[in-house]
Computed example of a mutant assay.
Amino acid sequence: MTTHRVAVIQASSVPSDSAATVDKLIRLATDARGQGAELAVFPEAFLGGYPKGADFHIALGARPPESREEFRRYYENAIAVPGPETERIGAAAADLKLFIVVGVIERAGGTLYCTVLFFGPDGSLLGKHRKLMPTAAERYLWGQGDGSTLPVFDTPVGKLGAVICWENYMPMLRMAMYGKGIEIYCAPTADDRPTWLPSMQHIALEGRCFVLSSCQVLRGSEFPKEFRNEISTDPDAQLMRGGSCIIDPLGKVLAGPVFDEEAVLVATIDLADIPRGRFDFDVAGHYARPDIFKLTVNETPLRPIVTVREE
C-alpha cells in the first residue's frame, strides 16, 4: 500500500510542566489517530518548552543571578532521554499504533539540546536528532548536536527523518538527508513567519519528498511565568502563531497553513508521488554532479572526554 494518512499537530506546551504536556500530547495524538493518521508530528521544543521572548537577562559579558535561576528552572523542565516522559509517549504510541515525532528539550549532563524524538507504533524509541546549530539567542541555552544523530528510518509510512527549524536553511544538511533517501521530511519549527511556507514548498520540490512542518501557537497567557518576556507581557499577545502545513513532492499544499489557533491537520499522502516527482529531478541522484560537487558528512559521535585504559 502506498497511501497513508499523516498528521501535524499545532499546539502549545503546558507552561513549565512536561508531565502535563505529555498528557496533552497523548490527547492530541489520540485525536490524530481517530482521523486515521498513522504518523503524528509535534512542534519544536513541545516538551520542555520554547519560551519565545525570554531573554534570560543576558548581555555580552554579563550573567546576573537572575540568568542562572531562570536557566535552572528551564533545565529542570527539560527531559532525560530515555526517561519517564519517553516511556509514557512510547506506551501511547503502542496503544494507538502510531508513529510519533516530537520536539523536546533534552537534558544530558549539564547541557540542554533541542532534540527530535522518533517513536514507533510498537512503543519503541527509534532514535533522535539533536539540532546541529541553535539560532541566535538559542545558543545561550542549547548545545550543538553532532553528525551522529542524523537518522532516517525505513518505516511502512516512508523513510522518515527530521530537520529542525532553521537547520532547514543549511543546504548541506538538506543534501545529507536527501542522500539518505528521506521521503517523510519532518520539520518541527518555531518559525511562524510568512516566509516559512514557501521555504517548506522549496524543500519538498528540492527533495521530491513530503514535508510535514509543525509549529506551536503560543499566547502570553501560556508563557512560563518564571521568565521575563521581552516581546510582550500581554496575556492576549500572540507570541507564536503557527503556520503548520503538509506539502507534497511537487510543492502542493495538502493541509494548512493554519494560524492563531490549535489544530490537528491530517492529509492522505501517496508514496508513489515520490518516484513520479524524481522522474525529472533527483537531487542526490541523476541531477547531482559528483564530478564537480561532493559532500562529506562526519557521523562520528564527538565526545569531549575519551577514556583510554592500558591493560
Rank of each mutant, 00 (worst) to 15 (best):
P64F: 06
P64M: 07
P64C: 10
P64L: 09
P65A: 07
P65I: 09
P65Q: 12
E66T: 13
E66C: 09
E66L: 11
S67R: 06
S67H: 12
E69C: 08
E69T: 10
E69H: 11
R72I: 08
R72S: 14
R72K: 11
R72N: 14
R73I: 12
Y74D: 08
Y74W: 11
N77F: 02
N77A: 07
A78R: 01
A78E: 01
I79H: 00
A80I: 02
A80C: 08
A80W: 00
A80F: 05
P82A: 06
P82D: 05
G83R: 00
G83D: 01
G83S: 04
G83W: 00
E85A: 08
E85N: 07
E85K: 01
T86K: 00
E87A: 12
E87P: 12
R88Q: 14
R88Y: 13
R88F: 13
R88W: 10
G90H: 04
A91W: 10
A91F: 12
A91E: 15
A91G: 13
A93C: 14
A93G: 14
A93V: 07
A94H: 07
A94N: 11
A94T: 13
A94C: 11
D95Y: 10
L96T: 04
K97T: 15
K97S: 14
L98R: 04
L98A: 06
L98T: 05
L98D: 02
F99G: 01
F99I: 05
F99T: 01
F99H: 08
I100S: 00
I100D: 02
I100L: 11
I100W: 03
I100F: 05
V101I: 15
V101T: 15
V102T: 14
V102G: 02
V102A: 08
G103H: 04
G103Y: 02
G103F: 02
V104E: 00
V104Y: 02
V104L: 00
V104R: 01
I105N: 10
I105E: 06
I105W: 06
E106Y: 05
E106G: 05
A108T: 07
A108P: 03
A108R: 06
A108Q: 07
A108S: 10
G109C: 06
G110V: 11
G110I: 10
G110F: 09
